[in-house]
Design a protein around this nucleic acid. Structure first.
Lengths: 238, 238
DNA sequence: ACCTGAACACCGTTCAAGT
DNA sequence: ACCTGAACACCGTTCAAGT
């Protein structure tokens, strides 16, 4: 529905050559940025090779000059997300405060583009910015006294949790049209509120909180708090 | 590659009518079971309407008698998974032990079919078995002194973590052919081990633990421990 | 009631050319 | 070096029939 041919619109038909010279040259970064922007508006399912090509007024095959296949495009998106993480500088603060800072920075970056959040976790170890994050986290966990193996497992869990807070946020959009989204949330809350209060008293009472995030800042603060607290406690549990 | 026509194989071609009478009638449960079995072997991407129809020697459209669309098939898979959760009976044990029992049961059920784990979390509130799990969890959190809102958020996080332990298990298969999977794990470990030990000392040291789960029982025990410990601590953090 | 068949509007991707 | 064009083997889904 986008992308009418520019020549047709202007009323002065242009050759493919002219059109090709007009548009800015396709680069990897440009395609990745466009993919993220598209996901923001229409969700990850809308991000297809053909759709991106169309938006760049280019043949689908033109993208294969920059990405071997679609998975490499998704890698590019994840790497960009990780590059956006504003890691706090190392400091003399206690390890748990610093860990909390790392996780908070990750959550913030991912929150900006929730539609592509699911791409990040499996790809952390595949790019320098992700490796930097992992190295910092592992170092903090080691300094807290955890073994290499424990640090690896706990670090994986912590990073996973920080990202999953975003994808599992109550009222997380499975639908990207904002008003259709509101409709879905309302319908879901009504369904829960209409359940038998004898069988599901607590679900009914929590219908609102389960379907909508009243205060995202509180939600993320609580989420990161329990992740860090759990890891802190793990030292005595082991 | 599966599903050669039975008539062709037997050398005695049969009419579509005969074939239709032979096969067991298509039911919703049967299709769901087949879908899970297929995902177990070839991953979730292999679960398509057309592929399932082919395995049942039926036209794709025949499935639409039991599911309005593909999403309803995925709903069916998630519901079946939740019905498989062996919830422990309520007891007089402390709330945190009981919560741990609920989460452990969820993790066990999901672990049996990791390929469809991602379908479960967003659909917990959509079927009786999921609602039962949620109700039990919320009741325990309320009994621990959390407010309705806190219980809703913490319960959501706990359930999410229990499921995500499975999808994020180190060495989690993004590829379902078992030997191709081993190859990928080996390659990934080698990549990490080959990084600069000056820039990424802890990543290099943890290359093994980051790519392979040495002891799944320990991994899941630790994971559930820190989730429950984090929630326990949240009472004093608030 | 249950299934079929043809068609539509999409996918990712390969191969062989064009300029 | 960068892009095109046609084709292939897939998707989910609609509509109109068949028995």
């Amino acid at each position: 529905m986008a992308a009418a041919k520019t020549g047709d619109v202007a009323g002065a038909p242009r050759s493919a050559r002219t059109a090709a010279r007009d548009r800015e040259p396709l680069t990897r970064d440009l395609v990745v940025a466009q993919a993220i922007a598209l996901a923001d508006v229409e969700g990850l399912d809308a991000v297809t090779i053909r759709r991106l090509a169309q938006e760049h007024h280019v043949t689908p095959m033109a993208l294969y000059r920059h990405f071997r296949d679609k998975d490499e495009l998704l890698d590019g998106i994840a790497e960009r997300m990780l590059a956006d993480v504003a890691l706090p500088a190392p400091s003399d603060a206690p390890w748990d405060e610093q860990l909390r800072g790392l996780l908070g920075a990750l959550t913030e970056a991912v929150r900006a583009h929730p539609a592509v959040a699911s791409l990040v976790r499996p790809r952390i170890m595949s790019s320098p910015p992700g490796l930097e994050l992992a190295e910092r986290g592992l170092a903090l966990l080691r300094s807290a006294g955890f073994s290499v193996e424990q640090a690896a497992e706990l670090g994986t869990m912590a990073v996973t949790s920080a990202i999953t807070l975003v994808t599992a946020e109550p009222g997380a959009p499975r639908i990207w049209d904002p008003e259709a989204r509101d409709d879905e949330i309302r319908a879901k809350r009504a369904r829960l509120a209409a359940l038998s209060p004898r069988r599901y008293p607590n679900v009914v009472a929590a219908a609102d909180a389960l379907t909508n995030c009243a205060s995202p800042p509180d939600y993320y603060r609580l989420g990161l708090d329990i992740v860090v607290a759990g890891i802190r406690e793990a030292r005595s549990l082991r």
